[in-house]
Simulated scan of single mutants.
Amino acid sequence: MARQDVVRLPFERSTPSIARTRLAAFLTQNQASNDVVDDALIVLSEMIANAVSHGVPGPDGTMEIRWSIAKGLLELSVTDGGHVDSLKPVDFDADSLSGRGLSIISRVADRWWVDMDQGTRVNAMLSMRRS
């Protein structure tokens, strides 16, 4: 059974649904609870939506999406070809129509961080044991 996967998907607004389907299958094969699956799909969707809204595609017009399970932790990452100075969650309210992605990731994931060595890679970790 695979404990990791790396996919390159089109840099398009339809990509979150493709990635969610693949991640849900991966997590189901790895016997993740429904709570883990739900939280992971939310985090991954926000990561991809942020990349498409604020990043740039790689040279081949895609983005790289990774997930892996090790030591009871699920790690997710989304890499685009853009470069930014910093990424920080912003406060939002119920009426906000945008700008909520990093705040949602921050609230749902156990930990998240950004690596800007080669493009912009947003990473998040979630415990495989959700309460």
Rank of each mutant, 00 (worst) to 15 (best):
M63W: 00
A49F: 08
N50T: 05
T21P: 03
E46Y: 05
V36K: 06
D39H: 11
A70K: 09
I42A: 12
A51F: 03
V56M: 10
S77P: 03
Q31I: 14
F26N: 11
V36C: 14
G55Q: 01
L74W: 03
S68I: 01
M63N: 03
G55E: 00
S53H: 08
D38L: 11
M47Q: 13
A40W: 01
W67A: 03
D39R: 13
I65V: 13
L27H: 11
A24D: 09
W67R: 03
L76A: 07
L73P: 00
E46I: 13
V36Y: 04
P57C: 02
H54F: 11
L44G: 10
V52E: 05
T28L: 09
S45D: 15
S68K: 05
T62F: 02
G58R: 09
R20M: 14
D39I: 00
R22E: 13
L27Y: 06
R20Y: 02
S77H: 02
P59L: 13
A32Q: 04
A70V: 08
G61C: 05
E75R: 12
A40T: 06
L76H: 01
V43L: 09
S68D: 08
T21I: 15
V36H: 04
D38R: 06
S53I: 01
A40R: 06
S45A: 14
I42V: 15
M63F: 05
R20T: 14
G55T: 00
A40S: 15
L73N: 05
D38T: 13
M63A: 09
Q29M: 10
M63E: 04
E64S: 13
L27T: 06
N30Q: 15
D35T: 10
P57H: 01
G72W: 01
E64C: 09
A25L: 12
A51H: 08
V37C: 11
L76M: 03
T62R: 10
M63P: 04
A25T: 12
D35W: 01
A70H: 08
S68H: 06
A24T: 10
